[in-house]
Write a protein that binds this DNA or RNA. Structure first.
Lengths: 336, 336
DNA sequence: ATTGTCAATGTAAACGTTTACCCGTTTACA
DNA sequence: TGTAAACGGGTAAACGTTTACATTGACAAT
């Protein structure tokens, strides 16, 4: 179909080896020959066939990203970070949405194996026996992002979810809140969702506050689920919390919506703190106080770790924990 | 490295041809043989190498998406639509962000050619001579999405931007607004941004309203640019508009923010209508009245068109125009 | 018994590269 | 001047598939 290395070689009156050498400059070739070849390449618009090259060199130049959710507001930022370093290494990014379904996730992993991806950035929701089998068998270089999966042996890039949650709740406590509710995410093994809950729990405990189980409700990180969780908290408790910690900004927004719809003023009647600091957090009124996580950085770091792993760089870090920071905006009130 | 078709063949005591036949079921093979082969495949975890296959069959199973912006709130939805149909055809999606820079865009296109992508979904910002050269030379099947590029000869999937803008402004007029400002996007050729402005212009003209050039300011589709555009409108005019039409929801949110910061009540003092209906539109207070565009559908349709083009389906549509609809929320007030 | 047909399978070429190996010329140095 | 090293460049094998073509054997029809 297109023009191949043979065509170029013939037209330039050299062997295909020479052409290969100039396009990769893998070996010196005489200036005149080089020029001749370059000229033909320009004329014909020749592009080396990545599949043929990949087959031979056993690398595809492709990195895969599996996420459970592309609409959570952090995805774009994550991809931005990933792309920035992928681009520098002239690789390409394949994305795929598992929708949080294990079956789909596994299927994607297998497809990625077939496609001969050089590495995978994996933002899974759970690490099952099947995952283990997969990674044991195929050994595709992989790094986990925004999650940890201890015991999987996979390097990860994340923040310290426990610590971040602890500090968020502690921030509330320092503002004299005592009745603190939480809208948490689902629990899986040692997942981020679980860690954030642990942080909440310990912060309360350390402050000598009792944790009230009807104050914690589960959501699934969507705005709607945050709304519904807050509805439950409102209806099930006579004495309302003075503050709520949501395990994601989207859920926090749902909480906020719910409060507003129930004529609760934020932060006068009730304070809210979120998690992530997505763009939404700053456009909502009142603006959301939250825990800032630099997802773009997480993206960058995960590719860097992955690239190290691909190059079998033995003494490379096997994890990275990014900083976080509480950003005060308008949804937390200091009680007197 | 991994297990290949040869290994499977040897272990099953058959020829590689037979193995190939069962994994593709391209030709009948005796049930017992088949079973034997299948068993070995399962045992060894054999996966066909997509690069080898692709090289031979001259197709990669890869579709590329180029967008200028992944953080505009429509991207996730678009990709969702794209993925849903790509998945059905067991293909994979490569994404790439041009950041609206022509150079980068062109570079991506060339990389896509090298990677032997089967097709490209192109959301460009401008169609230059270099684009034309590229498509003329390489003939990679391509469909344009959320844009048109008449004269490029490329099929497109979009809405009728002119009509949609016209109706949005007409909606304002029907609510008795007469002083209508617009925050428009940048103009390129016959771009969507231009079309939306034309719709605004004509709607005013048809209603016998004069268009006031200090009422129209340019943004670049970000929230911030919307804010700044509105600041200009506010500062440059003694008599303020009673309504503003923003060419995207994000800019509309910027406008809203600016109004709020300037103690203008929305919609009491000023009405706003946006464009796109991204999720943000519903979480902002007051909730944004806007023109709903189904980006997920646009995504689906663009892959469908692309697949037709790849299969050289001659009598396939060469464009698709999706519906849109005005969704009334809380930012437009009916004047009396 | 001979031929023909058909199904199942095998053989080998081809896809477009990279690269180990080889060969011929030139250069450097004793 | 002779020999070795260095250099430039060509040949061909290999990467893991698919597939056209060839082969085999079984069975039916003559």
């Amino acid at each position: 179909m297109g023009v191949t290395i043979k065509d170029v070689a013939k037209k330039a009156g050299v062997s295909i080896a020479s052409v290969s050498r100039v396009i990769n400059d893998s070996k010196p070739v005489a200036p005149e020959t080089k020029e001749k070849i370059l000229k033909v390449i320009k004329e014909t618009g020749y592009k080396p066939n990545a599949m043929a090259r990949g087959l031979k060199k056993n690398e595809s130049g492709l990195i895969g990203l599996i996420t459970p959710d592309m609409e959570n507001g952090t995805f774009a930022e994550l991809v931005k970070g990933i792309e920035s370093v992928i681009e520098k290494n002239s690789m390409n990014l394949i994305v795929s949405n598992s929708k949080g379904e294990i079956e789909r996730e596994l299927r994607e992993l297998h497809i990625f194996k077939e496609q001969q991806l050089d590495g995978i950035i994996f933002s899974g929701v759970k690490f099952t026996k099947k995952h283990k089998e997969y990674f044991d068998r195929y050994k595709v270089p992989t790094v986990v992002v925004s999650q940890k999966f201890p015991g999987s042996g996979l390097p990860y890039v994340d923040i310290d979810n426990y610590k971040a949650a602890y500090q968020a709740v502690d921030f509330l406590i320092k503002n004299n809140h005592q009745q603190i509710a939480m809208v948490r995410g689902p629990f899986y093994d040692k997942s981020a969702g679980k860690q954030r809950y642990n942080g909440y729990f310990e912060a309360l405990k350390d402050a000598g506050l009792k944790v009230n189980s009807s104050f914690v409700k589960e959501g699934n990180f969507t705005i709607k689920s945050g709304y519904q969780a807050m509805e439950k908290i409102l209806s099930e408790n006579e004495m309302l919390p003075t503050a709520v910690f949501a395990a994601s900004d989207r859920m926090a927004i749902g909480v906020l919506d719910c409060c507003l719809d129930n004529n609760l003023k934020v932060p006068e009647d009730i304070s809210i703190i979120g998690f992530d600091d997505i763009e939404l957090a700053t456009v909502v009124r009142p603006k959301l106080t939250t825990v800032r996580v630099d997802h773009s950085k997480l993206g960058e770091k995960s590719v860097e770790l992955l690239l190290n792993k691909i190059k079998k760089n033995k003494d490379s870090e096997s994890f990275y924990e990014a900083d976080f920071e509480i950003v005060e905006r308008e949804t937390v009130k200091k009680l007197t």
